[in-house]
Design a binder for these strands. Sequence first.
DNA 1: GGGCCGATGATATGATATAACACTTGAGCC
DNA 2: GGCTCAAGTGTTATATCATATCATCGGCCC
Lengths: 179, 179
Amino acid sequence: MRRHELTNPAAAHTDGASHDHAVCIDALLDRAKHSFGEKGLKLTALRLRVLEEIAASHDAVGAYDVLERLAARSGGKVAPISVYRAIEALREAGVVHRLESRNAFFACHAPHLGRHGHMALVCDKCAEVVEVEAPDFHASLQRAGRDRGFAVTSAIAEGFGVCEVCRAEATKPAHEEQS
Amino acid sequence: MRRHELTNPAAAHTDGASHDHAVCIDALLDRAKHSFGEKGLKLTALRLRVLEEIAASHDAVGAYDVLERLAARSGGKVAPISVYRAIEALREAGVVHRLESRNAFFACHAPHLGRHGHMALVCDKCAEVVEVEAPDFHASLQRAGRDRGFAVTSAIAEGFGVCEVCRAEATKPAHEEQS
DNA sequence: GGGCCGATGATATGATATAACACTTGAGCC
DNA sequence: GGCTCAAGTGTTATATCATATCATCGGCCC
Ligand SMILES: [Zn+2]
Ligand SMILES: [Zn+2]
Ligand SMILES: [Zn+2]
Ligand SMILES: [Zn+2]
């Protein structure tokens, strides 16, 4: 089992159940086109396929998951390095981030140009990742660093817990639970 | 080369050059003994050997680095899983942390019982890790999460930049540089 | 002693990521 | 068109990080 997978994949609830995810995807692809253009990068067929797989949910997925899904869905097989290269380009374009604590990747649905001041919240139950703005975070980190002569140029922050939907499910009466 | 190593290991300056690191080690070992005792864990010979290797510098080191150093220094070879198990125990005791962004581990020289409210600052030049207290961080993360119904139970934060010593070296006149 | 449990050993494998080099393609230039 | 160059991708191999599984050992309790 991939290290970032859940014991209960059925717990994932962001593939359309709680919102119209097609809207998320459309907005993301649109932003990706613009972002690639602005940065002089090319949103090639492979990169688009990889982005579509990552953006298919709000979860963080491993590079090898992407690879398997590409093979299963798009037909043509690709090598691990090709997936990693595509992901790297998507990261440069700012449409995909890496979840450092899980060695996995997730689509950025909340543009925040400049890599600073956002945090990822990861649900331990359903693996969903949401980004929250945290303008204070980077500033306070730089302040803390400055006290020690440390010049902070970039930072990451990741929080773990239980998301709203999973909390609601956890408090549901037992007879409403799925088997 | 291990991914977390530097291109110029000589840049490391925390192995005694800029402070009396024996003091750091003594304090850490002392704290480790107490912490293992309090938690009902045992600071076994293997765990102590692993801790000594990790604590030998303020850098983050990979599990396989530890393994190689154990083989080189202490004689007896150990399997990767044994190193990982020892590291896991040291983490539970709170004397070692994982640097998520590098898949590496570093000794905690700044006790902060409870895993909240600290951040790691990593020098891109010398790989030194310093921990800074950030009492606001976890609170603000929980506040941000609460707005979205997300209950944050733990979090990590890692900052990257250039430490004081390396900054000083960078501004030194060229004729003082090492070849 | 015998049962138990936490720690370690031993072996194998899984999971994540990159190196090196070849090939293709398209843009810019002449 | 033909040339060059750079970016992207393919192909193969390998490096790096981490865990599964079962055996064994040694202290501790009864
Ligand atoms: Zn969505
Ligand atoms: Zn984002
Ligand atoms: Zn020290
Ligand atoms: Zn610490």
